[in-house]
Design a protein around this nucleic acid. Structure first.
Lengths: 339, 339
DNA sequence: ATCCGTCCCGGGAACCTTCCCGAAAATCCT
DNA sequence: AGGATTTTCGGGAAGGTTCCCGGGACGGAT
């Protein structure tokens, strides 16, 4: 087991004073003689004393820690969001405890439970793709632990949220494809229990409706964010009697893999098929043709969520706040048939 | 502040028994009547009691938590490694606390300090690119807190490590490029204070020596893993009087960006320049030409590190263990001039 | 000399849990 | 029945910290 680490009472014993005095000296409280304070601090440095955070937090009933639950860090969106969160949290002197749900409801439940049991001061959550029950999310709300949803929000719950304009941007993206002369636009949609996914799909559907384009269920793919399925649904889509002439994909990797498959089939992009991705990854600028996409500001969303959370923690009262961080359409070659 | 959460003494008070009994009942200790145990557990469920982990850990002098310090989660290698770590840790009932150093020594120090102060049971570390002092890493070793380095190891310290065959694989990669007829192979090297980077460079250098190829300093680029610099050093390399006819890049994204730039310059890959990346990202299969790379098993390394760490934690004695997880060369089109 | 105010400091409770030990109650044995 | 043993439970310390409160020392004022 770990070697003994020095505690406040070791210092007290050695110096022949009480632990109260040592505590005061270390937290440079006023009620202590300058000389003894100096001696305490010297000895503390010498023994490289560090306060036991468990004890400190237990006593203070605060942990200076915020808990984060995300689906996966291998998902670049969330990796970047975590970056934004850490930035803001660290600057405010808070630690961040990151948990991954691996896109499962079970792990999300577990993560939330241990974060609550660890007495984090607040929670930042982006739900898993499986999440269709909300009791575990209601729990911190009931206990009045500040909670902010970001990106993958749950509309039904009374908590703050940082979200993006999924509906509008997908409407805009779809209209963009239409403006390029696409008549049969395929849409690769996410899991429909996610509020985001539903909004995105609706944006697409309403754009078609507004432009009097018939909606075809066969052009809509419901996917699970796993990349393995790209090949199979691409085949299905492009074996249709009338194949798509445009694709709005759920993310850039799916878009890129589709383009790869389509090129092999001898289709030209964007002439035969215009492609629009989602997330605006760096790689999009480096492939051929360059990929049009939706810039989805991950780091900003994480930072905003952390700011709202910290405000709530410090205010000591919970006011629901909803902050919109806009995504925007980035047009490159893969969807540009006119230039 | 958070609404009061029920504690063990609430249960005791309501049932009119002592907290000791409640504690025993909840941990189904033998020393308790079946009937009272049932009553306690019922009430606990009803009040949805969860033990306060701070208090529990303080008392038990163990936290069932392992601390992880990595440079960045946006680096896909580390994101995947964290996945492997979580997998193993969770299965063993351990929680994982992830900290990012953002590739800075300062944050790495801070992270380590708070993890130690939080009394984690063990540490998993991959050092930042700035790390050239080791006092903060020596500290947990002195305190006999189990510590395992993975991937970005520090050779000088007496700790277990999970590493890959950097030297051999770079030797092999370089010889592969030579076998394709390359005479002037550029090497994009990482920060030389990292043991990994030095080994990789040495593998390259020794492969050249063995094959009697003159080493040219102008073909070696020292980079910092930041992507912005790719353009500038690519220009420098390919404005040389004698330009390279092969490139061994530090990672796939750098390789891809270089290929992008070179193609714009009208160079053919692999005919004019053969390119070899590092990390074997998924994207490598999807671009044109497909990218040769080094498969660097992130998840396996993370999992192995976690296993070794858990073994040390349970053994209660520290035996240094060094585990090699081999990388391997994956040849695709970008370096294949012969097919 | 007495009193008061200031300056320092120590004792002890509290945070919540676990665990040791002793005691009370129940059961068993002869 | 009476003692011995088992079962069940409570008290209290411990883990490390903070913080309230009370008290001692000492200076100056009356």
């Amino acid at each position: 087991m770990a070697k003994s680490v020095s505690t406040i009472r070791d210092i007290a014993r050695i110096l022949g004073i009480s632990k109260s005095t040592v505590s005061r000296a270390l937290n440079n409280h006023y009620d202590v003689n300058a000389e003894t304070a100096r001696k305490v601090q010297e000895l503390a440095a010498q023994l490289d004393y560090h306060p036991n955070l468990l004890a400190q937090h237990l006593k203070q009933q605060r942990t200076n820690t915020i808990g984060v639950v995300i689906p996966e860090t291998v998902n670049r969106f969330f990796a970047k969001a975590v970056g934004g969160i850490q930035e803001v949290a660290n600057r405010a002197g808070y630690n961040v405890m990151i948990c991954q749900s691996n896109e499962t409801l079970d792990l999300e439940r577990n993560n939330l439970k241990t974060l609550m049991a660890s007495k984090v001061d607040g929670l930042l959550i982006s739900v898993s793709r499986e999440t269709n029950q909300y009791d575990h999310l209601q729990y911190p709300i009931d206990k009045e632990v500040p909670l902010v949803f970001f990106d993958r929000i749950v509309e039904e719950l009374a908590a703050s949220q940082v979200y993006t304009n999924n509906y509008d941007i997908c409407f805009e993206g779809t209209e963009h494809l239409l403006s390029q002369g696409c008549k049969r636009i395929a849409f690769v949609a996410g899991p429909q229990n996610l509020y985001n996914s539903r909004n995105r799909l609706n944006g697409y559907l309403d754009a078609l409706k507004k432009n009097n384009i018939a909606i075809s269920e066969s052009l809509i793919v419901y996917t699970n964010y796993t990349i393995n399925e790209v090949e199979s649904y691409t085949r299905a889509l492009f074996n249709l009697r009338e194949r798509p002439d445009g694709v709005f994909a759920i993310n850039d990797m799916a878009a890129i893999e589709m383009m790869h498959i389509l090129k092999k089939r001898g289709l030209n992009i964007p002439k035969d098929v215009a492609v629009l991705g989602f997330n605006n990854e760096t790689i999009g600028r480096l492939i051929e043709p360059t990929l049009s996409s939706i810039d989805h500001p991950a780091s900003d969303m994480g930072a905003a969520a952390a700011e709202i959370l910290l405000k709530q923690i410090h205010k000591d009262e919970i006011v629901q706040e909803k902050r919109l961080i806009k995504s925007r359409l980035v047009i490159r070659e893969s969807s540009n048939r006119i230039a």
